[in-house]
């Protein structure tokens, strides 16, 4: 088994769970990759039901049901409430979609992948592009992975990622988009 596969299967939330060791020798219980699609897994997670509802309303579920892999940093319901408050109603749905678009990354990224990249980065930070056009920066913050948007918005990755057959959903505790009307 190659290194990547080991990293993928070896408890991707090691860091988030406080274990702190994500080396390929890690022996923690593997996290199974589901046969479900990302759309189905997001729809089945009550902690991110607000995001799921938006994806459904906007017809974005099909995006996560297909062949192409995506990774979603999904704000928890508590975090996403700020979006719904700032951009309410059907009128503002396009704005809410613009917000969530900046939480969608190309490809299949596990927390272990992100952690490994951060640890290997000379300056301790790595960037990933989003579908919104602005990159996100990942760093380690007290043994937790933090993510910062180009506009300074910040969140922490939460434990318990959803590893779907065609993508990953990682819960985050904030919204990675400045919602201030300035």
């Amino acid at each position: 088994m190659n290194r990547t596969m080991i990293a993928l299967l070896a408890a991707p939330a090691l860091l988030l769970a406080g274990c702190g060791d994500s080396s390929e020798e890690a022996t923690e219980a593997p996290v199974a990759v589901s046969t479900q699609t990302l759309a189905a897994m997001i729809a089945g997670d009550s902690d991110i039901s607000a995001v799921s509802q938006l994806l459904s309303d906007a017809g974005l579920q099909g995006l996560f049901d297909g062949n192409a892999p995506y990774t979603v940093l999904a704000p928890t319901n508590a975090a996403f409430a700020a979006v719904e408050e700032a951009l309410p109603g059907d009128d503002q749905r396009a704005a809410r979609v613009a917000v969530i678009r900046e939480h969608v990354l190309p490809g299949y990224l596990t927390t272990a992948d992100i952690e490994a990249a951060v640890r290997n980065a000379p300056d301790g930070s790595v960037q990933m592009q989003t579908m919104g056009g602005a990159p996100l920066t990942f760093t380690l913050e007290d043994n937790t992975i933090g993510v910062t948007a180009a506009d300074g918005s910040h969140a922490l990755l939460q434990a318990g990622e959803l590893l779907a057959s065609n993508g990953v959903a990682i819960r985050v505790d904030g919204v990675l988009k400045n919602l201030d009307a300035q």
Binding site: R3, V33, Y108, L109, A116, M128, Q129, P135, N166
Partner: peptide, 20 residues
């Protein structure tokens, strides 16, 4: 390579073939 691809992100089904 364009900036913003620092993290390994190959689709799950291809990771045994294309790994860093």
């Amino acid at each position: 390579m364009p900036r913003g691809y620092d993290v390994y992100n190959v689709p799950y089904g291809y990771r045994d073939r294309y790994y860093d």
